[in-house]
Design a protein around this nucleic acid. Sequence first.
DNA 1: CTTGTTTGATGGTCTTACCACTTTCCAGAC
DNA 2: GTCTGGAAAGTGGTAAGACCATCAAACAAG
Lengths: 247, 247
Amino acid sequence: MNNQNNDLPEPLFTPIRLERISQKVANQLKKAISNGVLRVGERLPSERELAEQMGVSRPSIREAIQQLELQGIVEIVHGGGTIVKNITEQEILKPIEMFLGADRLRVLELTEIRALLETWAARQAALHRTEEELARMRGYLDEMEDDFEKGRIRYEIDFKFHTEIVAAAHNTIFLHLMSSIYQWVNYSIRIHREQVFVTKDHQQRIFDHHLKVFQAIHDQDPDAAEACMREHLVYVVEEFKQWSSSH
Amino acid sequence: MNNQNNDLPEPLFTPIRLERISQKVANQLKKAISNGVLRVGERLPSERELAEQMGVSRPSIREAIQQLELQGIVEIVHGGGTIVKNITEQEILKPIEMFLGADRLRVLELTEIRALLETWAARQAALHRTEEELARMRGYLDEMEDDFEKGRIRYEIDFKFHTEIVAAAHNTIFLHLMSSIYQWVNYSIRIHREQVFVTKDHQQRIFDHHLKVFQAIHDQDPDAAEACMREHLVYVVEEFKQWSSSH
DNA sequence: CTTGTTTGATGGTCTTACCACTTTCCAGAC
DNA sequence: GTCTGGAAAGTGGTAAGACCATCAAACAAG
């Protein structure tokens, strides 16, 4: 690109921008993802929407998105939209997945790490949460309460609630990292196909824990948030250990 | 979470091919280049020609060519055609590296995470360290002291010392996690090509920090270990912030 | 020969249209 | 009630044609 440049002493006078539109679009999208405006797992607006919002044509948007896909930042699904990928997945998740298969010791190690990260997240969330994030947490709590009354269990809502707390910590890399951890947890749950916390009693306690964590974050009380989250996770670990020893 | 999973016994019956046209085109072009049909420095046929020859539309050709450009295989010149570049095999940036390069804020986020994990590791190390691990830490400290006297700086020794502490926490998954994060840190240091902690004064302080951390782990005092490690990392972050604001 | 202009080819972008796939929802069957 | 099937809407994939911006080579004027 510099081949036609004169080597004259002055770099002035010729800063006339030349950048492909698709490049500008790609940069804007990257920034949005890096900032956390577009979270991991979320869907990007459709190509047509983006084209309209940015005032460019759809092909330009497409070329930009394909760049991002090639760089492993997003995943394009035909007919299903474009979703933000977890950037840590290839580097952390895949290499270690094998370990988790066999023994439960690894599951405990994993939970240990998760507890460390989540208590910190709860503290940070209490400090930095926005009203929007609070509202989403509230929504998940309502869903869980609804499920509880109907005797239904959906782990994904649980994950969503915890993920929202992590997101409220406002650390993008941390969010991506945590989503890798959750995938592990999800994976280990699946392979052990366990129904550990199925009783009404467990569900009640877990719901109470969630409520207390939410309240602390709502009140912007970092110490309480951390403590409640720790209490919650310690309980989960203990119950799992107990279940584990009897199976 | 298992909703999308088919529990059917056989995955047979659905190998129907699906590949984007642009992908096929890209593969054909790559093959032509690696075969030598298209030599380095030569111009590819124009997009319109390729579209006609392959019987596909121009956008498909464009998307394919842009892929090749992103991979450094060809160079596109507006108005001048597309030429085959040297196959210098320039590495494609990993997604995580794009994040770290995008914004200096991400470096702080990363350091924040590192601080969280390492303070915990120090505590665990104080509780579980073995004599062998202690000896290795001692060895790295000696090397650092030696380097210090000779006015030399080797980040890798620093990393090794920290990694040994992480290993002493005796959590396999955590060790893998942490080594990934160290790679990121290493990369972010490289791209910002910074020489932040180069003065004798900094080196002295950092060495003192390491020594105190080591002592606490040696004495199996988890609280002290965590506190010393936190003090160390807080110092590093603060110095980086200060350096960052002045550059 | 040098300089400036013209002209054609090429990549860049836009518009429009249609196809293929996924998701969602709802009526119908059990 | 749950489950099944299909219609409808939304999304990405591809195609075709047009126009603009840029470069390069041929051309004309000095």
